[in-house]
Design a protein around this nucleic acid. Structure first.
Lengths: 75, 75
DNA sequence: TAAAATTAGGGTAATTAGGGCG
DNA sequence: AATGTCCTAATTACCCTAATTT
């Protein structure tokens, strides 16, 4: 029983990035990123005005799935 | 505004490049590059819509490695 | 408040994926 | 087995203007 309430209930605010950021990472146009969200291909939040924002964690997950390098072009 | 807003837009260079870009570097058709990825000969990322993207670092590594026959990086 | 940069939205041309063929 | 070219359908890039953000 902790006499004190540390109140560490930190919801860990997700780091939101702009479509331009994601576009630069994927090597596509920012408009394409918004299109991905619009088509439900990519999870993203929307500002009350209609601007898109994406969670860096989601983006990082997609990028890490690439399996960077370690693939010698030999059989 | 609350103090300064640390949003320096990040470096965010095009980390991923298109098959056409890689194809031009290797002197092959873009379709060949996608085939390399399909056959697992080259590491690549897949955009949420199915298009291929390759890591610039991987490509640069392969190209650099190509001339390692006799090219000591003297200072 | 004003200005500059970014974003959304529409429209059109270029690129890409996928299969098949030589 | 590997690469290039032809085809169609889907996706993307760049043009513009208006709204939003910083």
């Amino acid at each position: 029983m902790s006499t004190h309430d540390p109140r560490p209930a930190r919801p860990a605010l997700p780091e939101l990035v702009t479509p331009a950021e994601v576009a630069a990472l994927f090597g596509v146009d920012a408009k394409t990123v918004t299109r991905w969200i619009a088509h439900g291909r990519l999870p993203g939040v929307r500002t009350p005005s209609g601007h898109h924002r994406l969670r860096r964690t989601d983006i990082d997950r997609l990028l890490k799935d690439a399996g960077s390098a370690s693939a010698p072009p030999s059989s």
